[in-house]
Amino acid sequence: MIRCLAVDDEAYASDIIASFISKTPFLELVGTTTNAFEALNMVQNGLVDLVFLDIQMPELTGIQFMKICGDKCRVILTTAYPEYALDGFEFDVVDYLLKPISYERFYKAAQKAQQIISPAQVEIVTPPAPTSDFIFIKGDTKNKFIKVNYNEILYIEGLKNYVSVYTANQRIITYQSLRELETQLPQPPFYRVHKSYIISLDRIKMIDGNALYINDQSIPIGDTYREGFFKVIRESK
């Protein structure tokens, strides 16, 4: 097992990485922290093999962190700023993940780390499917999370700066990205049918041409997603 630490000055961001680590068979989560100095102490005490490290942190930047750590651990950088990629690779980082991070992209980076840190243990593994029947959706204030059962979700709509999750009884607004939510939802029953929509196949009332209907809501089927969507529909008969 590769011992992992998630470091980000935003607790929500490190919690996402932690959830990805926890469901990856060859990774072990040893902790999350928003304090770069706490993370540095854990690395220097030999408690960590791999750090998922945010570059922009107030007390100690990711670049400074790597300079101090040297070769005591391997690093996968996580950031919202692509311009730092070159700086990161000068320190021989394993990979560079651009936020928002999908589980698929995370898993590829983790496999790279496995090949470097534990090459004898490398095997081709399909990412595990979600085992829970609910999801925690980040609310509209800091540290607010709303538990929603999968079977309550009708569809999810991505707008310019936020995402709306629709259930039969409420609309939940979250600042998570649509892609981030997509990686956390089981497929099926959830399926991306448009760049702006994820729907529950269980909730479809009717499909008519280039649109499907959930309750009275018409949802477009995008050109990019049409072939895959109708393949799923045919196979579900």
Rank of each mutant, 00 (worst) to 15 (best):
1 M>Q: 10
3 R>N: 02
3 R>F: 00
4 C>W: 08
6 A>P: 01
11 A>H: 07
11 A>E: 12
14 S>I: 03
16 I>Q: 13
24 T>E: 02
27 L>F: 09
28 E>P: 01
34 T>P: 03
36 A>Q: 08
36 A>L: 07
38 E>F: 01
45 N>K: 13
49 D>S: 06
50 L>I: 03
57 M>G: 12
61 T>P: 04
62 G>S: 13
64 Q>E: 15
67 K>D: 13
67 K>M: 12
74 R>I: 01
80 A>N: 10
80 A>H: 10
81 Y>T: 02
83 E>N: 07
85 A>T: 10
91 F>Q: 12
92 D>L: 08
98 L>Y: 09
101 I>H: 06
104 E>A: 10
108 K>Y: 10
110 A>Y: 00
114 Q>V: 00
117 I>K: 05
121 Q>V: 02
122 V>W: 08
125 V>D: 02
126 T>S: 07
126 T>R: 05
127 P>M: 05
131 T>I: 05
132 S>R: 12
133 D>V: 07
134 F>L: 09
134 F>G: 08
135 I>A: 11
135 I>R: 12
136 F>S: 08
136 F>L: 15
137 I>E: 04
139 G>S: 14
142 K>E: 14
143 N>V: 04
147 K>M: 13
147 K>C: 07
148 V>D: 06
149 N>Q: 07
153 I>K: 12
155 Y>K: 06
158 G>M: 10
159 L>D: 01
162 Y>K: 15
163 V>F: 11
163 V>A: 12
166 Y>K: 15
168 A>M: 05
169 N>C: 09
170 Q>V: 12
171 R>F: 07
176 Q>F: 12
176 Q>K: 15
176 Q>R: 14
178 L>M: 05
179 R>M: 09
182 E>K: 10
182 E>S: 10
183 T>H: 03
185 L>T: 08
186 P>Y: 04
189 P>W: 13
192 R>Q: 15
194 H>S: 07
194 H>G: 04
195 K>F: 00
196 S>G: 14
205 K>F: 03
208 D>T: 01
208 D>K: 11
212 L>C: 12
213 Y>S: 01
216 D>A: 06
217 Q>R: 15
217 Q>W: 05
219 I>D: 04
221 I>R: 10
222 G>D: 06
223 D>Y: 08
225 Y>H: 11
226 R>N: 03
227 E>Q: 10
229 F>E: 06
